[in-house]
Amino acid sequence: MANVLVVDDSSTMREIVSGYLNKHGFDVALATDGRDGLVQLKADPGIKLVVSDINMPNMDGLAMADKIRNELGNKSVHIIMLTTEDNPVMRERGRAIGVTGWIVKPFRGDAVLGPFKKFCGIT
Rank of each mutant, 00 (worst) to 15 (best):
M56D: 01
M1I: 10
E85H: 11
I103S: 03
K117P: 04
T12K: 10
S76H: 06
A29H: 12
D53T: 01
Y20F: 15
P115S: 10
V51G: 03
A96K: 15
L41N: 04
M59Y: 09
K23P: 02
I80A: 06
P115D: 04
N58Q: 12
L21A: 12
G25K: 04
L82C: 09
H78Q: 13
K67C: 09
P115F: 11
D36G: 07
F107P: 08
N87V: 07
G37R: 02
M1N: 13
G101T: 07
G19Q: 12
I80S: 01
F119A: 09
R35E: 13
R69K: 13
I97L: 10
A31E: 00
N74R: 13
V89P: 00
E15K: 15
N55V: 09
V39I: 15
G37P: 02
I54E: 02
I79R: 01
W102Q: 08
Q40A: 15
M81S: 03
V17D: 06
L82E: 05
D66L: 12
M90R: 15
N87I: 04
A65M: 02
G19S: 13
P57M: 00
T123C: 10
V4L: 07
R14W: 07
D36E: 11
D86A: 11
G109Y: 11
L5M: 08
D44C: 08
Q40I: 02
N87K: 11
R69L: 04
V104D: 02
V112L: 15
V28K: 11
P106H: 11
T32Y: 01
C120R: 09
I103W: 11
A96R: 15
V17F: 10
S18C: 12
L21K: 10
G61K: 03
S11I: 07
A65C: 07
P115Y: 11
V39N: 13
G37F: 05
F26N: 05
G46P: 07
T84W: 05
T123F: 14
